[in-house]
Amino acid sequence: MTRRHYNKMAAAIVLILAFGLPLVVRSATYLHILVLLYFYAYLTTSWNLVGGFAGVLPLGHAAFVGIGAYTSTILYLQYGISPWIGMLVGGVLASFVGVLIGLPTFKMRGAYFALATLAFAEGIRVMVENIDRLGPFVLNGPRGLQIPPLKLGLGNLVFASKEPYYYIILLMLLAVLALTWVIARSKLGYYLNAGGEEPDAAMALGVNVARSKLTAMAMSSFLTALAGAFYAQFTLYIHPKSVISLDLSFEIAFIALIGGRGSIAGPVLGALLLRPVSDFSRIYFGDTLPGLHLVIFGVVLILVMIFQPRGLQEPLTRAYNRLLDRLAPGQTKELGT
């Protein structure tokens, strides 16, 4: 067997496991945890288009989750528009806002960019918290919006059990991973990486660095908002602190940095590792030590940055390649990147 065969086999095993899991895991609590795990893996993968490939550190992606969640929910509650359509409208709106945020901030470097995006997102949260009505749209300020689970079904994206949500977010995750894979191998991917690593050299080679970053930002915020709409339909209740919170923005960045930003596997690995920590610390210490998970993330992040600055995907990828060397010796691995 060749490396390619082994790769395909590994992918097939992962897919079978992922699709078969709900047949084994019957507990609603565990399914809920898994849905959120995929949700975060999806968010981080979307974030990675900017935060990984373009080499900047956005800390305000919760704003796009919020835009997606609020747009689809308002359209659904007030106008009866299917959340699937609301999802797309939210995506377009978010990419518009993403470009608006990116225009002035992509010229900043390092910490300034991170702080600027964080400030934008916080600004949006505070505004939503203080607005009950925005023109014809009811936002309900800090109280948020509730979706009554009356009309069930795929068209309304409301289900009585967790399984449908599980499969929907799994498919969304696979789609965004595939998209990332394609982009990484496209001109845009090369331009983003080049501009992130050595902007002056990239510009000298004909790369309009700011424009490729804006393109990535538009895509990233669009994709992020789709997950926001999904989240609203999944929890049936959104409020500013749940969908536009700093916590959410930080957790995405933590997952990316610990898993390995700029790689395709990194966000998924990071979510696999950190989400259980997050959920179990909330279940067991939620009352006594709220926010404990962020402290644990901080410690893990420090350790990872010291020992594996490129994230956990690096040693794992190396181990996987060594295993393949054993199984299919003498074959060169995929080259070109």
Binding site: Y190, N193, A194, E197, E198, A201, A202, L335, G336, T337
Partner: peptide, 9 residues
């Protein structure tokens, strides 16, 4: 150079 990338990249 884009140091983390290959010559070809």
């Amino acid at each position: 150079p884009f140091a983390s990338k290959t010559v070809l990249y």
